[in-house]
Nucleic acid binder design. Structure first.
Lengths: 194, 194, 194, 194
DNA sequence: TATGAATGAGTCTTCATTCAT
DNA sequence: GATGAATGAAGACTCATTCAT
């Protein structure tokens, strides 16, 4: 179905989701408000409650939107590789690209924050958990593929360990005065894989 | 100075901090509101702004209160050990007790959530970062002491790695349908230390 | 469009403006508060922020409302004159009616106060200045018409001088123990025009 | 009595008055708040209510302080003249200096605002009126002296007229987009005296 | 199918004033 | 004589949600 043939309602819904996802990425959960979403989408305020039965609904959609986008970006990143990554360093950078996003290369807490806000925000927003689990599993598949391509044999447990290492490094780096979470994660991966 | 001789003003201030810290632990940052704090402390609404120049101020105090309490509990946990921990398993449990709190033994996301909400909440509340760094450093000292006592030689880098491993495991476990973050962390520590 | 057919929303908006304008006239800028306006209009508090994006917005509307009303009253006063005003005294009274309002005939500071509060309040409320300039210009047109009708030739500069004379007389009369600003202005006009 | 021998209480009172007067000049009546005054004076909040039975009391004192200071400046301005002012222009500038303050030479509404805020603010603050009358009378004496010195014979009525002209010109100039009230007043005085 | 209108509850914060010490 | 402590009332403004059309 082309964009042109997408029903108007669906298109508006998507516009709201995209607006909410943008707000979520920029300002965290607090920033996702009916008013703000409607304004960003250029749609009437009431359309937010018309298309989404509650704010939580809208937040779910936003979380999924952001997550799917990241997954797609990860997939694309993987596909653009002509052949297998050579060497540990290439594997590490690939892991970081997929886990933290390519934007994390620039340093700073902001580009990576969304991933951890969603994770840590889930217990207080139980409706997010199933969604997060699903997307987490898909991300793991992608990460597993990195090792497959590189020829490195890595068990599922080992993969989870490496993910944890990255996530823990990042979470702890978030409070640094000049945070560079990607570098922190890289250091730890290098120590483990090197 | 005994409790009885604590000046009244300081006692009220502490009551507000304790109330805010409780709300923070139970409901996250969003739950710390002037009204809620005042009600929980049984004090007038205006007392919250009398003792704290802004809500951020109060939040800072609450974060510090919770953090100091955890540190004190960790210190106490360490001191109650008659001699050195015997065996890897004991070391692991000790690590988990100090990092996640003894309450984490019961399972569930709630007991460990506060640690990660504070970490992940810091980038959007920059005034927390220095405080968090200070308390993080103190916690690392405590954790280092575990290894010293056990006779295991562990470098600072290695310690940070282990912390990251725990934190990453926890953060990823938060989205499980029946989260048991402590167990997840334990598994990873066992794999690394075992 | 009759009152009955005025859309409800517009009617409510007008009710708020009228309430604000009344408060402004009776109590000055300080008296225009969300609460007071809503109560006077018999509408919910939140309606004030629904119809006006800020208090300044509401104050602007109130200032314009009062100003337009005065201008309309001046216009009406002029139109009720069958023919030209005869004699200097009639011209003077007409000038005073338009500048200070017919209510000023009764003496007292209150009836004239609003004009000067708006003028003097503008520098600290810059958003009022354009509005005030516009209404000032329209008032000058009305005043010019008085002289045209009376057959007296008065240049624009001379008109501004006479306005200044009245305003200055009034402003200084405001501190008298039993203020009669209209009389003070009349005396000065008589001396200049007599 | 020298400053050193001024009783401490009186000195503090004066500090509060000076602080209030400064706030009044900078921010108008609204800016005179207990907290702001105390902070500016570097004194405890409660000292404001200890030395002044109410905020109105403090405002009165501030109004008087500012007024006396202006009068003193006017007196000084007059005394610094070696001989009589020569020519109408010199007289006009002198009038403007005394009425609007020498700061008005720089243009802008701010330097002259205080005079008109006090005048127009008096009807809603009746306790100010007697004070304002007294200071107004003293100012008139000063202005009369200008004409005496210059050799120009000007009746009391004429003087009041000239004052009104200046005040009216200023008040109307306050709403200009780039207000230069002194110039507006100068023009009118020149037309009348030239 | 949409949406403009509407609002009760709540947000943080300010303030004049009182009072015990 | 002086002031730290305290607070009820009010300030402007936001928000999720409902509802009539």
């Amino acid at each position: 179905m082309t964009a042109a043939s997408t029903p108007k309602g669906e298109r508006r819904r998507q516009a709201l989701v995209a607006a909410a996802a943008g707000l979520l990425a920029e300002g965290g959960f607090e920033a996702v408000r009916h008013r703000a979403v409607a304004e960003r989408a250029g749609l009437p305020l009431a359309s937010t409650t018309y298309y989404f039965s509650s704010l939580d609904d809208l937040i779910s959609a936003a979380v999924e939107h952001d997550g799917r986008q990241e997954l797609a970006a990860g997939r694309a990143r993987l596909d653009e590789l002509a052949d297998q990554p050579r060497g540990t360093d290439a594997v590490i950078e690939l892991l970081l690209d997929l886990l933290l996003g390519v934007a994390s290369r620039d340093g700073g807490a902001e580009p990576v924050l969304l991933r951890y806000e969603r994770l840590v925000g889930s217990p207080r927003r139980p409706y997010l958990a199933p969604l997060m689990r699903q997307m987490s599993a898909e991300l793991q598949e992608l990460l597993a593929e990195i090792f497959e391509r590189s020829g490195m044999r890595v068990s599922r447990e080992r993969l989870l360990e490496l993910i944890a290492l990255v996530d823990g490094a990042v979470v702890n780096a978030l409070i640094e005065s000049d945070p560079d979470p990607r570098s922190a994660a890289r250091r730890m991966l290098a120590a483990q894989l090197g």
